[in-house]
Amino acid sequence: MRWAGAIAGALVFAASLPAVPVAVAEGARITGIEHVNDRWDKVSVFSPSMNKVIVNDVFKAGRGGAPTFYLLPGIDGGDNLDPGGMWAPGTKSWFGMADIAGFFADKNVNVVSPLGGQFSWFTDWVADPGKQYQTYMTRELPPLIDAEYDTNGRNAVGGLSSTGGTAVDYAVQAPGVYRAVGSYSGLLTPAANPQQVSITLMGGGASADAMWGPAGGPLWVAHDPSLNVAKLRGVAVYVAASGSGNVGAVDRLPPGFGPNITGGLIERIVADSTRVFADNAAAAGIPVTYVVRPDGSHTWGLFESEMQESWNTTIGPALRA
């Protein structure tokens, strides 16, 4: 494990940030709440920017006045995209693949994870009005959660794989909304890796040009966390990936699974991307928590472990500060 940046410095900056109230976007509203159990709700929210309803898993804090930790889904939006898979819709998600209830049971925080957004990168698209997820996550959803669950207005956000860089980008695009961000094996250098973005989106029949315009254009630069590190000053940042991409105990794969060739390849790509981001942050004097895991092959086991570590080292302290 290798650390770069100053954790303490990041937390000092985060502590200086007041909670920034976000006005409810006109037309955004909660349309229904399903109580799964005493701590777990499924909250349906109408997004005016996309003209559709988004379902959000919510693990409720034990008492009012708590902060909120948002967790973005991966490229599949929480649904199974693997032929022959056994996951029901909406269960290949943070609440279905990670022990959210167990880990956060004794922590006074609301945990919210939107579902859907397949092949969207969870950002705003220039040529698809049905994909305006940055607007949803920075203007529409947080104020509704704040009002419904009596929060203290302090927010953090984390993302995995395709949405890891997006979570960090939210702090760049909407200053003050998120005081802490986490990237779990995410791509933090999209402008330098447009082919990786394009290949990922093509898996769902989507075009990267429809997202941020032609590769190399101004929106690719504007949404690249590694090129906008100076805008993260004052935000507590956690970024991590496995340096080897090798299968390890952290992956929690079945015995005899064998090498995870595709996952290992992806993990090594995002590890290099995460290193570039951390180096750029260090050069700019921006403190971040940067972790290189010894093993892990781009699996839910790795993502969950990174998320828990981010809470313990960076996000939890920033939200409590």
Rank of each mutant, 00 (worst) to 15 (best):
V22R: 05
R179M: 13
L141M: 15
S120E: 04
G32S: 10
T166V: 08
T138E: 11
I261M: 07
E140T: 12
G296K: 04
G159L: 09
F122H: 14
V157L: 07
L71Q: 07
P129F: 06
K60M: 10
R268C: 03
V43N: 02
G130Y: 05
I261Y: 02
L232A: 06
R275G: 00
L253P: 02
A249S: 14
G176I: 04
V172G: 01
P73R: 02
A66I: 12
F103P: 00
T262W: 01
D124R: 11
P48Y: 12
L232C: 04
A98R: 03
P18A: 06
A101P: 08
P73C: 02
A156W: 08
A127Y: 10
V55Y: 02
P21I: 11
F13G: 10
R179W: 08
Q132G: 09
L160I: 10
V181A: 05
G117S: 12
G182C: 08
F59M: 15
V181E: 05
P73F: 01
D82W: 03
G85K: 05
A6D: 11
G116I: 14
T163E: 06
A15Q: 13
P287E: 01
V168F: 07
G32E: 08
G216N: 11
R154F: 09
K60N: 02
P317F: 04
R252N: 12
A241K: 03
T299Q: 01
W40N: 07
S198E: 14
R293V: 11
